[in-house]
């Protein structure tokens, strides 16, 4: 009995001393933090992806509180909704941002872009691209080792095992831009999500001359400028043997898609065309 009592008293005393020490230490080292930082952090998606340009959500919350105007700050994951809430807490206003999404500008799947050699090094795009142009004739195209997949914190991009190309999951992509930075070939771009998620873009980054580009890939942009001519909104420019569509100007009329001789222009989420079913069948990427 005595022994038990002794143990209880002894442990109790240790506990009491520890608690007192902890209390005073926490008083001495107390840091005054703006309570709004915590409230903003609660709203933020807590993905810590760094898409905003700050180290994690806490850093972004701090920046929001400090900032005079919120126009330069944007959480790509939470989008406008989150930013409006943040602005509400801080009593500031934010500009409406247009939702963006990542698109992969390469369409050279295994059939369109034949393999010319066999890569046996580490399966990593950065390593492969610093070694050589890649295992196909196109030195601009996707290498398919999935650095973008590794970079994505939202499980929103995956390599399709059939085409060996990355595909963006529209429901999950938050346009944080991690994959854009990860791709050593600069194939991924953030583009406007578009009305009903409809988008048109040139699915090619090949800057070789048309003949050479076409030789290595069936769906390469050959810079024939047909799309440029047909576009009623002057949305298409051709530079370095490569067409690109300005998504600010593009009105999604799809004229360029029909015009492109190599099916290099990709349309996403459009209803199937009834009058010209042939083209749809020829163009495997428009079937979603």
């Amino acid at each position: 009995m005595n022994l038990i009592l002794l143990a209880v008293i002894f442990l109790g005393a240790i506990g009491a001393i520890g608690a007192t020490v902890l209390y005073f230490v926490s008083q001495a080292f107390h840091v005054e933090e703006d309570p709004r930082i915590g409230r903003i952090q609660d709203i933020l998606p807590a993905a810590n992806c760094g898409g905003c340009g700050y180290p994690g959500c806490a850093g972004f919350a701090g920046a929001c509180v400090k900032a005079e105007v919120l126009d330069e700050l944007f959480c790509p994951v939470g989008g406008s909704e989150t930013m409006n809430k943040v602005a509400g807490i801080l009593g500031k206003t934010v500009r409406e941002k247009i939702p963006m999404i990542a698109v992969v500008r390469c369409n050279g799947n295994c059939e369109n872009r034949l393999r010319t050699n066999y890569y046996d090094g580490t399966s990593n795009c950065a390593i492969s691209s610093s070694l050589y142009g890649g295992d196909t004739g196109c030195s601009y195209g996707c290498l398919g080792h999935g650095d973008c997949v590794d970079a994505c914190s939202f499980d929103a991009i995956h390599i399709n095992p059939e085409t060996l190309l990355p595909e963006v999951d529209e429901g999950k992509c938050t346009s944080c831009g991690a994959c854009v930075k990860a791709c050593p070939k600069q194939l991924i771009q953030l583009r406007k999500k578009g009305i009903k998620s409809r988008r048109i873009y040139v699915g090619c980054m090949n800057k070789d001359k048309g003949v050479i580009a076409r030789k290595s890939c069936n769906v390469a942009c050959i810079a024939c400028s047909k799309c440029q001519k047909v576009c009623p909104f002057e949305a298409i420019t051709i530079e370095d043997n490569l067409a690109s569509i300005n998504d600010d100007r593009c009105r999604l009329c799809r004229k360029c898609v029909d015009e492109c001789p190599t099916s290099a222009i990709v349309e996403l989420n459009f209803p199937l065309k009834k009058e010209k079913p042939l083209i749809v069948e020829e163009d495997p990427i428009s079937i979603i």
Binding site: L131, Y132, G133, G134, S139, D208, I212
Partner: peptide, 10 residues
């Protein structure tokens, strides 16, 4: 002209 060298880049 631009030709692919040992690195495969032109």
């Amino acid at each position: 002209d631009s030709v692919a060298d040992s690195s495969g880049y032109k």
